[in-house]
């Protein structure tokens, strides 16, 4: 594998967006890009990552390769990332290490790190990427992040309901409750403020607040978040990157007995 990001902070943002959700991951590298899936220890949150060749300045992968890493180690190396540096990832055919090369052409500086790969035997879940949903919402990632930060302070459970009035985020804590209603809108001058809802059925689902706080760490990857809900499946929270690919979080709901 030889894959070069023209801006090393892109890879840092990707890794930082899920390093607190899962501790280790297998990157599956092939000619169609880098893909990965990991499940958190409680088996409630699944991270699904896709970095297609379009995200790279140059991308070459001669044969499918699995690259297992501890995310805390990788994240330490990526502290060296800067927007003025490129980052090339190298993995040999018989991989036992990942080489990261940062190059700053203006500063005539290069940094090289080598990281030992780990053999990760995690089971993978079969996720249908065309999973049917009753409700799809596209909205500002900044707005979603603020709502999650504000409301999760009040309760361990966070409820999302979608009906004819719009989308309602609410919490009902021991000492306080809160509710935010958003209606669809189109802001032609600032499309990142758009909110669209398509719905075949109303939904009313609750999630554990702590996982939502992990999910919003990926909001640095995209202006928009796409939400998919259905009463029968986990919810999908997805941040799509400008150059293609992105990160999706599948989150199992909480049900009242």
């Amino acid at each position: 594998l030889e894959a070069k990001f023209d801006d090393s902070t892109i890879f840092k943002k990707i890794i930082d967006s899920f390093k607190d959700s899962v501790s280790q991951i297998n990157f599956m590298c092939s000619e169609s890009g880098i893909e990965a899936q990991a499940i958190d220890d409680s088996r409630v949150l699944l991270v699904s990552l896709s970095i297609p060749p379009s995200c790279f300045e140059t991308y070459r992968c001669d044969r499918p390769t699995t690259v297992g890493v501890y995310l805390s180690s990788l994240s330490k190396l990526l502290k060296s990332a800067s927007s003025s540096a490129t980052l090339t990832l190298y993995v040999e055919d018989q991989p036992d290490e990942l080489l990261l090369l940062f190059e700053e052409s203006k500063a005539s500086k290069s940094m090289e790190y080598k990281m030992k790969l780990v053999d990760i035997t995690a089971d993978m879940l079969e996720v249908d990427s065309d999973m049917k949903s009753d409700v799809s919402v596209e909205m500002s990632g900044v707005e979603f992040t603020k709502i999650v930060r504000d409301l999760t302070q009040l309760s361990d459970s966070f409820t999302v309901s979608v009906g004819k009035d719009g989308i309602v985020f609410s919490v009902d804590g021991e000492t306080a409750s809160g509710k935010v209603l958003l209606q669809p809108k189109e802001d032609l001058a600032n499309p990142e403020n758009n909110l669209s809802i398509s719905m075949t059925k109303t939904i009313d689902l609750s999630f554990a607040s702590k996982y939502l706080l992990d999910i919003i760490k990926a909001s640095t990857l995209s202006n928009m978040i796409s939400l998919k809900f259905s009463e029968e499946t986990p919810a999908l929270f997805e941040f799509k990157m400008e150059k293609g690919g992105g990160i999706g979080f599948y989150l199992a709901p909480k049900y009242d007995e």
Binding site: I39, S42, R43, V44, L45, L46, D123, M124, L125, E126, V127, S155, D156, S157, D172, S206, A208, T233, P234, Y250, A252, P253, K254, Y255, D256, E257
Partner: peptide
């Protein structure tokens, strides 16, 4: 407030 479901209840292991 509710019982947390696990992903294994929804997705099959590959």
């Amino acid at each position: 407030q509710g019982t947390q479901k696990r992903l294994d209840g929804f997705f099959k292991v590959k």
